[in-house]
Lab assay of single mutants.
Amino acid sequence: ELREAFAKVDTDGNGYISFNELNDLFKAACLPLPGYRVREITENLMATGDLDQDGRISFDEFIKIFHGLKSTDVAKTFRKAINK
């Protein structure tokens, strides 16, 4: 299930999730959020999830993000976006 969610976000299939891919995910989900809020959520996920600070999120980092977000608003938003 997590591998499928990761693949859905990794639209270019390079094995990593970029800032733009995350941002595009939230935009495509048509969530009722202003653009600046989408950017804040994306920046927050990148800042906390990109553990090796290479500017992208690997599958291992994605798993840690996903499990670390349990019930936060960001987690709910992220799950809604993935499930669209």
Rank of each mutant, 00 (worst) to 15 (best):
F66H: 08
D73K: 11
F26N: 01
T72Q: 12
D52H: 13
L31A: 09
F26S: 01
D12F: 05
R37V: 11
D60H: 09
L51I: 12
L31W: 07
F66G: 01
L22M: 08
A29T: 10
D10F: 03
N20M: 07
C30Y: 09
K8I: 02
V74C: 13
T48E: 12
E21I: 01
K8H: 04
L33V: 14
F19A: 12
D50R: 11
K76Y: 11
N14R: 10
G68T: 13
K80N: 10
C30L: 09
F6P: 00
D50N: 07
E61R: 04
V38Q: 06
D12G: 05
H67E: 15
R39E: 11
D52Q: 14
A75M: 10
K76I: 04
A81T: 14
F26P: 00
K80I: 10
S18N: 15
F19D: 02
T77V: 09
T42P: 01
L69Y: 05
G49F: 07
A81N: 15
P32M: 04
G13Q: 06
Y36G: 12
E1D: 15
D52E: 14
P34V: 03
G55A: 07
E4S: 07
L22A: 02
L51H: 14
A75Y: 07
T77P: 14
F66R: 01
D73F: 07
L69K: 05
N14A: 05
G68F: 09
K27D: 07
E4T: 04
L2W: 01
S58W: 01
N44L: 09
N44E: 14
K8W: 01
V74F: 09
K27I: 09
D12Q: 08
R56K: 14
V9E: 01
M46I: 14
K70W: 04
A81W: 05
R3K: 08
K27C: 05
D24V: 05
I65Y: 06
S58Y: 08
F59Q: 04
F26W: 03
Y16N: 02
P34R: 03
N83D: 13
F78E: 15
L25E: 00
V9I: 14
K76W: 05
E43D: 14
C30V: 04
D52N: 13
F6E: 01
R56W: 03
G55M: 06
A81R: 13
E40Y: 03
I41F: 08
L22Q: 00
T48L: 07
D52Y: 08
A81C: 10
T77F: 13
G35K: 13
A47E: 11
E61N: 10
A47K: 14
Y36C: 12
I57A: 00
L69M: 10
I65P: 00
